[in-house]
Amino acid sequence: MVATREELEADRLALRNARTSLLTGGTVKSVERGDRRLVYAEVSVDSVNDAIAEIDRQLALFDGGTRRRRALSVGL
């Protein structure tokens, strides 16, 4: 299933909130939005930043390119 622009923007917001939690000393083991949930063994700020960058690339395709199907990877 291909994510919509709204889904990608909501995922980006959830990841930004997770990054803020990490930067303020919290721990993030999962990110939830609606019925979607990402669970991490342990997550770093760098891996969250990588996931945000990937979503930003996907969103940029909505504005001026052809949408390519590719898995969203989150490095640990």
Rank of each mutant, 00 (worst) to 15 (best):
A53K: 11
D35L: 12
V2R: 14
V48A: 06
V74D: 10
L13N: 08
L59P: 02
G75Y: 13
L15Q: 00
S30H: 11
G34F: 07
S47I: 02
G65I: 05
D50R: 10
S44D: 01
Y40N: 08
S73A: 11
R69I: 14
V43K: 06
L22K: 03
G25V: 05
I52P: 02
E54W: 04
R37N: 05
S30N: 12
I55G: 04
G34C: 02
R16I: 12
V28Q: 02
D35E: 15
F62N: 03
E6V: 15
L59S: 07
R67N: 12
D50W: 08
E32N: 06
D11R: 11
A10L: 14
L61G: 02
E54I: 03
L15N: 08
Q58I: 02
R36T: 14
G65Y: 04
G34T: 03
I52A: 07
G34R: 09
L38F: 08
A51Q: 01
S44I: 05
D63F: 08
A53C: 00
R68K: 05
D63Y: 11
L15G: 09
Q58A: 15
V28C: 05
Q58D: 03
L23G: 00
L61C: 08
T27P: 01
A10W: 00
E32G: 02
D56C: 01
R68H: 01
G64S: 14
M1W: 15
D46I: 04
E6P: 06
G64N: 13
R12C: 00
V2E: 14
E9H: 07
A3E: 15
L61V: 06
V43D: 06
G75M: 13
A18C: 02
K29Q: 12
Y40I: 09
E42H: 10
Y40L: 04
A60C: 04
D63R: 13
L38I: 11
G34P: 11
G65F: 12
K29T: 15
I55Q: 06
D50F: 10
L23N: 09
G25C: 11
A18H: 00
A41K: 15
L72S: 14
T20C: 11
E42K: 10
T24R: 12
L15I: 09
T24H: 01
R5I: 06
E42G: 08
A51Y: 07
A51G: 03
V31K: 04
T66V: 05
L23K: 07
T24F: 02
L13Q: 15
I52F: 06
M1L: 14
V74Q: 07
T4M: 04
D35T: 15
R12E: 03
R69E: 10
S30G: 01
G75Q: 13
L8V: 04
G64A: 13
L13V: 11
T20A: 01
F62H: 12
A10D: 14
L15P: 03
A71H: 13
